[in-house]
Design a protein around this nucleic acid. Sequence first.
DNA 1: CAAATGACCATATTAGTATTTTAGTCAGTT
DNA 2: AACTGACTAAAATACTAATATGGTCATTTG
Lengths: 191, 191
Amino acid sequence: MAVIDRKKLILEAAAKSLSLYGYKATTMDQVAKLANVGKGTIYTFFKTKEELFDEIINSLIADIRFEVEGVLDDSASILDNVNNVLVRIHEIRESHQLTIKLIQEERDMGTQTVVEAMQRVEQSIIQYMKAIIQKAIDKGEIKACDPEVAAFVMLKMYFSLVIDWQRNHPPLKKEEIAKLFELYLLKGLLA
Amino acid sequence: MAVIDRKKLILEAAAKSLSLYGYKATTMDQVAKLANVGKGTIYTFFKTKEELFDEIINSLIADIRFEVEGVLDDSASILDNVNNVLVRIHEIRESHQLTIKLIQEERDMGTQTVVEAMQRVEQSIIQYMKAIIQKAIDKGEIKACDPEVAAFVMLKMYFSLVIDWQRNHPPLKKEEIAKLFELYLLKGLLA
DNA sequence: CAAATGACCATATTAGTATTTTAGTCAGTT
DNA sequence: AACTGACTAAAATACTAATATGGTCATTTG
């Protein structure tokens, strides 16, 4: 179309700057310049810097959801589905430029807005997983349980294993983690 | 005895100061004054502030081990033992003045020395739990598995449930957490 | 005249620096 | 020989001047 979509330009510019510099180091002047737009224009679409940021996080959440849906397979077992979802999310965390930058900023500077945003992302991931688990319960594949707690436990356990474990040990291979999931969460330890 | 045990005085003073003010805000002058000792004397027993601190962390680790051994019961099930141990450790985290202060400093200021110390404490807890789990494996109570990974998973899961879960939900009761442990780790989710 | 702009402002952040504090030493005292 | 506390170099902090930033709004533009 002939009319330039300024809102889109702004969102793209902001996303780019956030990916490169993080939240704190992204200024509204910077975004305006990158988007070839007057700074005031940004404020016709977004009330504050935080609102602009939140909209980009919404896109990120949508992207992740899209990726997650891509690896879901209704005919696969719950173990495979959960595992594939978690592996995919972990891959995104490690390859997606924006995610990398935000995790870094959260860890190194503890920027409040970023901490909150990452918690929102985590919450949304738990919600997808909750739905997956609910389906498995409905199918009778696993026992009845609170699907949200189950999703929470799985996510925490997965990231403990791939991230925290490495602090003092050689990293676990993907298949090892899958085995551990099967043992601890599905089969149980009881002899 | 007639001769004053200056090393003990110093350790007590340092422990007190650490409990009250944390690592950063505890100064060697402060410790010397509290211990009624010249500052130089401290350095006849401890090479650096960090070495003094490390010795106090060693005591903390020993205290925790003592507490843990107090709740262990050879005739109880592995589930009960693990649960009791984790509950006891959590109680210590919430009631022991030094622990409270250090967790706070780790979270709020990220003092490097404190972060490392807390990791050492965590590692030592994992080691006790590893031994408990190994015993259960030997007794044939649970399946053969890497006891260190099992200990790690249990600790992470427990603290996720009592600490992280509360960020977005009402806290889980002790019995609920015990039930969750039983379900996820021992029985497994499989229908 | 609606949409867009950028100079402008109050506030927040940073850089630069003076001041204080602190870990660790060591000459002197007990 | 054991202990001390004044001392020092280095680090942390407090203070201040300079800059940068989020957000506004009178003016311009298409």
